[in-house]
Amino acid sequence: MPRFAANLSMLFTEAPFPERFALAAEAGFRGVEYLFPYPWKPEALKARLEHYNLTQVLFNMPPGNWDAGERGIACLPDRVDEFREGVAEAIRYARILGCDQVNCLAGLMPAGADQEQIWHTLRDNVRWAAGELERAGIRLCLEAINSRVDMPGFVLDTSGKVVDLIRQLDSPNLRLQYDIYHMQIMEGDLIRTLERLGPPAG
């Protein structure tokens, strides 16, 4: 039986963010997610979750400068230290919020970049993050996001790229976060794709 969580970054946007927890609960949701918790103190978010009997099911690791157009920094060779600091911050929030999985945004391919170096950095960062999160009891998800409409240049833009990376790293703590909106744009044929992907899809 499918279980649905309300994405508070995209739903109930007629209300200020702190009020969306109540609206999600009133609509019958028992789980919530949102892009980033970091603008708010984790204790305040935890209080909202507990008050409305909601479970935090997912959020993203720090993405770099989102307002400036960055969409993750996991693939950027000159941002490795910042990426690792972001992993620690995501773990801190996840522990307080009782969230057992977080998503890593791979980032955009910089113009003129050495693609081999970009992929090497991404592999190393994801391997490191998966280990750190596993020790904290938190699953690491990787999401494929379409590069045709929403995020031109996004490095992991197909389910195949994510699954190949997961299989290369061979970590039990990695899962593909399969977003049917993004993958319908990039791949289509969703049912057969999910059947083909098998266990890495989550």
Rank of each mutant, 00 (worst) to 15 (best):
Q115R: 15
A136Q: 01
Y52K: 07
D179T: 09
L133G: 00
P152Q: 07
F12I: 00
M151L: 15
G72C: 01
P172F: 06
L190Q: 05
L197N: 04
A27G: 10
L35K: 13
G64P: 00
C141A: 12
S159G: 09
S9D: 02
M151C: 14
E132N: 00
L45H: 08
P110T: 00
R123V: 00
A90P: 02
P200N: 07
D164M: 14
T55Q: 13
R71I: 03
H182W: 12
F154Y: 08
R48D: 14
Q168T: 14
A136P: 05
L58G: 11
F29T: 01
Q184C: 13
G153K: 02
D170F: 10
R123Y: 00
P62Y: 05
D67C: 12
M61A: 11
E70F: 06
L176N: 06
A27L: 13
G188V: 10
P77A: 12
G131P: 02
G69V: 12
V149H: 09
E143I: 05
D189G: 14
Y38D: 13
G160L: 11
A22G: 03
L133Q: 00
W40Q: 07
G188Q: 08
I138Y: 01
F83S: 00
R79V: 03
D100M: 10
D164L: 09
S147R: 13
D81E: 15
D164V: 09
L142R: 01
Q117A: 15
N7V: 11
W66M: 12
D78G: 07
G64Y: 10
Q56R: 10
V149N: 11
A144S: 02
P152V: 00
A111L: 15
Q168N: 13
V163N: 02
V87Y: 00
A74I: 04
A47G: 06
Y52V: 07
R84P: 05
D67W: 14
L194G: 04
R3K: 12
R167A: 15
C99P: 09
L108N: 03
G86R: 08
L165T: 06
K46Q: 14
R192Y: 07
P18M: 05
N60I: 05
L11E: 05
Q177W: 11
R196E: 14
M61T: 10
D179G: 10
L197I: 15
L140W: 00
L58Y: 03
Y34S: 14
R71Q: 05
R139F: 13
G69K: 09
L197G: 07
I118E: 02
T121P: 03
K41C: 13
S9L: 06
R71N: 09
G153F: 03
G160R: 12
R30K: 12
R20H: 01
R192F: 11
G72W: 10
R175V: 13
E70A: 01
T193M: 14
A144R: 04
D150R: 04
P63T: 15
D164N: 15
E187K: 14
M109N: 10
R92M: 06
A24N: 08
F21W: 11
A88Y: 08
M10K: 02
L45Q: 05
W119M: 09
E195A: 15
P18W: 05
E195C: 14
G69F: 03
L156K: 04
E132V: 05
L49Q: 12
G28H: 02
K161W: 04
F83C: 02
L11Y: 04
L49C: 04
A68Q: 13
R92F: 09
R192W: 13
D78S: 12
L76N: 10
G69S: 11
I145C: 10
P62V: 07
A94V: 01
G202L: 12
